[in-house]
Amino acid sequence: MGGILEYAVFSLSLVGIYGILTLGLNVQWGMTGLFNIGVAAFFAIGAYTSGILTTPPTDAHLGGFALPIPVGMVGAIVVSGIMAFFVGIITLKLRADYLAIATIGIAEIVRLALKNETEITGGVRGMPGIPRPFDEMLGGQYELAFLIMLLILLGVLFIGLEKARTSAWGRVLRGIRENEDTTLAAGKDVVNFRLQAFVLGCCVMGFAGALYAHFISFISPDAFKPMLATFLVWVMLIAGGSGNNKGALLGAVAIWAIWSGTEIITGMLPADLTTRAGALRVLLIGVLLEVILVTRPEGLLSEAGERMRMIRREARRDKLAEDRGASGARSSAGE
């Protein structure tokens, strides 16, 4: 029983981290239509930044500043944001597909740097001993405490991004996504808004990276199989419903469940095939993505569906108000 509970807590924490990544991508792709295939790069930048800032002094890699964990997290957000700013300044004036190609380049360079810049990142040996929050205070109960903290942070982030989405700022982003020229004609600084959305999304991804680093406590280039992580986040967002924060979270949960499910299926394979099981899992997820794109491209919770529900709700409210107003008018006419 304890084992199952532990597994559930561990899984939920990973789902939460993927959920944050998906929310970050939703700001870029879902809301603004920016195509970022470098999700894993910003995730890794966040993880390594926080790792460098918070680990105890060491010679194995740069830093070991032993700063408090919240400082590491803020550092992760800031550094990913700065990276995103420079990438964005160069590429955001271009079309969505050029941005996509450019972000592959970023992901590739970050991957190479993690491996080769041994003095900064510890190279292939990775970076061990990243402190975990609440570890000293709670001892054994660390995982549960982390999950609760993660869910609170996720909740705060979700509410914040929902507010941003429904604000005037979010409307401009959707305008850019739907029709850039019209938005430009309406006097909005399109490139600037795109840059803001890109940087914000990357900050969220960097934050997720920091959380991951402090959760697992050890990071290495192998932990960031860039295509796999990026691809899973993309499938999550598209399956859940891009443009919709609720959909993004639902997608994270659903796809993670399927992803873990494939592990159970491949676990039943004969022993000589288990070394190739990872490839089979990726293949299944890839097929799933194509099926979703062909049959239900808007995802489980579509953005349009969300809007329809909102319009209906508003219509009902208006009708109520109208009825009340009309009956009030009638009664006043009767007097």
Binding site: V282, L289, E290
Partner: peptide, 12 residues
């Protein structure tokens, strides 16, 4: 997006 999926399907 679809071609990214195809890339992973082919590779795996």
């Amino acid at each position: 997006i679809s071609s990214v999926g195809v890339a992973l399907i082919l590779r795996s």
